[in-house]
Computed example of a mutant assay.
Amino acid sequence: MLELVIDSRIAAISAEMKVKRILPFRLRRMIGPFIFMDHAGPVENIAAQSSSLDVLPHPHIGLSTVSYLFGGEVTHRDSLGIEQIIRPGEVNWMTAGSGIAHSERFESPAALAGGLEMIQTWVALPEKDEEAAPSFLNYKPADLPVYTDKGVWMRLIAGDAYGLKSSVHTNSPLFYLHVVLQSGATFALPKEHSERGFYIVKGSIEIGATTYHAGQMLVFTKGVDPVLLARQDTTLMLLGGEPLGERFIWWNFVSSRKERIEQAKEDWKQGRFTLPPTDDQEFIPLPDDRSRPAGSSPKPEPLS
């Protein structure tokens, strides 16, 4: 049966960038290892310079961030010294592990070309990997499996589903797919994983006699195999996997231990995280901390 419908909420992540926030949700903190999901855009025009969309340097621990674009470009910089322009269809998998800081800038002339639109998810790490060395990997669209059928196109971003397997390195069993359905096409969820859901990026889906719309995520109980009917041309993001157990989340920090989050808060407050070497003149301060300069970005609120 359908376990839950999550309606996205509006959240601000920079001075001008507002997103639809899907996870975490008070009634559903995680789906498999996925603990966070934002949908940004589409942004086609903005009165101020595109730099007002920038997400200033900020820290993470205990998770992997996954950035996936439908349009536009984002410049990623991190404390490992990596600078990567992220383009549509690429998978950008940053594992924070013991700690990393990064920024997301929209300084390229192509940043808003065609309408900037991005999905970012966070994947919690298994306990054995929570303190792993941080890393960043960029995967090109040609590296990812694609499947087509009548009225159906899909790209396997990560994990395994429908007999396909992605080359993207993951730390636990999961699946993550970009699916495009033509109006009238039908589709089913993968059966390989115990926790499954999908987010409607655009369009609408009918299940039974009920229609669901863009901005909604549907979560299903184990063993249920619904038939999804596209009522119009529709884009979906499917995700899920195997649960990892309880995780705590505060701001940009995820951990199986509350005390580890407290340590990360103090480390960021005291400047013990390394900032990106070419992007270290401003940063987002710890929420509710006024002992450091605030930079140009509003302070985000803790997630829990």
Score class of each variant (00 low, 15 high):
Pro190Phe: 04
Ala188Val: 08
Lys191Val: 05
Gly245Val: 07
Lys140Phe: 00
Arg260Lys: 07
Ser167Tyr: 00
Leu181Tyr: 10
Phe220Ser: 12
His169Ser: 14
Lys222Gln: 13
Gly240Val: 07
Pro190Ala: 01
Val123Asn: 08
His169Tyr: 13
Asp279Ile: 08
Arg87Lys: 13
Ile85Glu: 13
Ala158Cys: 04
Ala47Trp: 02
Ile6Pro: 07
Ala12Val: 03
Glu282Thr: 15
Trp122Phe: 12
Ala96Thr: 13
Lys258Asp: 10
Glu104Ser: 11
His76Ala: 14
His39Asn: 14
Ser135Met: 07
Thr170Cys: 13
Leu23Ala: 06
Lys202Cys: 01
Phe220Cys: 08
Ala132Leu: 00
Arg9Cys: 06
Pro285Trp: 00
Leu244Arg: 03
Ala209Asp: 11
Met30Pro: 00
Thr278Glu: 08
Tyr139Arg: 13
His193Asp: 05
Trp251Phe: 14
Pro42Asn: 07
Asp7Arg: 15
Gly97Lys: 12
Pro300His: 10
Glu206Thr: 09
Val74Ser: 01
Ala124Arg: 04
Ile31Arg: 04
Pro141Glu: 00
Gly72Phe: 08
Gln270His: 15
Arg26Cys: 02
Asp280Met: 12
Asn45Arg: 10
Leu218Cys: 03
Leu156Asn: 07
Pro285His: 00
Ile6Asn: 04
Ala48Gln: 12
Gln281Glu: 14
Tyr162Arg: 02
Glu3Asn: 15
Pro226Phe: 03
Pro293His: 11
Pro42Ala: 08
Arg28Val: 09
Ser108Asp: 10
Val55Glu: 13
Glu73Cys: 11
Ser166Val: 07
Trp122Ile: 10
Phe70Gln: 02
Met30Val: 10
Ser166Trp: 09
Ile200Ala: 10
Gly115Pro: 03
Val123Ile: 15
His39Ala: 06
Arg272Asn: 15
Ser204Pro: 03
Leu63His: 02
Ala230Ser: 14
Gly99Phe: 04
